[in-house]
Nucleic acid binder design. Structure first.
Lengths: 155, 155
DNA sequence: ATTAAATAGGACTAAAATCATCCTGAATGT
DNA sequence: ACATTCAGGATGATTTTAGTCCTATTTAAT
């Protein structure tokens, strides 16, 4: 449907959550699930997947939990999404050369290529570290809206 | 899965096929199906949909068929795809304001917005007329490769 | 050693989407 | 009348999506 699945969305939320923690923090499934509004049992599966993909590490048992395998500035949005959704191809003709025999003469093929390239560029150029910063700005902004620091006195 | 469906692909093929015909030509389902390698009965459904969407007109009965409702230079790739797939949203949070209550503080939301904008830009900027031209170039190129007009003599 | 706390992993499921096929009906030109 | 086309509905197999639930395994603390 040309739309990312809940898996991808939830994976990004989880990684973003971990990226916002102080280094060394271990995050629990239940904690991430609640904070990021993801069904707990479903998130469990996604975290497993992220561990297998090498983006996240885990420790079992009491005092266990999850933490990032790399620093937030070294994880792009694309990596987070593709870790769980697999590589993105806007059309099956892009999967690999020869996947679609029509690409030799189909003029649409190269349009998809360009569209995909532009899309990837956006996802590649955003790291988890940047997203955490963006989130802080958003928070500051909404806080300012509600309780301005210094309301300009009209007296 | 962040991939267009066969519906969308087939719709584009059908419209492209009609765009490549001389104006006034009526195209038959069976003819389009064969030329564009689309299952005949499936294409039938897609053409119905395209008629309802207003991109294509039809005439029933003997000597009937399909033809474009607008000129090829007035139909963009995006219009062709969205006519059959409905509006594209890379993530459900983009469907409409308030669809996702997290968008107030979620820093990923605006990244999706930008990604979608860039993607749409590519699809918006390609008309069926241009695609027909592109196809002609591709044909000319592959023909040249196989039978070069004037092979450089080495004698 | 026991136990409580966590993740790992497999089995299962309901609902929806995908990718079609087939048949009947309606319109239209000859 | 008849052959030719599209219109529209019913049906269906398969896959994907979006989960849940239960048991096993690992680990830290007591």
């Amino acid at each position: 449907m040309l739309q990312i699945t809940r898996d991808g969305e939830y994976a990004v939320r989880a990684i973003l959550h971990m990226s916002a923690q102080p280094v060394g923090t271990l995050c629990l499934i239940s904690e991430i699930a609640e904070a990021q509004e993801v069904p707990r049992s479903y998130l469990s599966k996604i975290m497993q997947h992220l561990v297998k993909a090498g983006l996240v590490k885990s420790r079992r048992g009491a005092r266990g939990g999850f933490f990032l395998a790399r620093r937030p500035q070294e994880i792009t949005l694309r990596q987070a999404i593709e870790a769980i959704e697999g590589p993105i191809f806007l059309n099956i003709c892009l999967i690999k050369k020869g996947e679609c025999h029509r690409d030799e003469f189909c003029p649409v093929h190269q349009v998809w290529q360009e569209a995909q390239r532009k899309l990837m560029e956006v996802l590649d150029n955003k790291t988890m570290a940047q997203l955490v910063q963006d989130a802080e700005k958003l928070k500051g902004f909404s806080a300012k809206k509600r309780t301005p620091k210094k309301p300009p006195s009209t007296l």
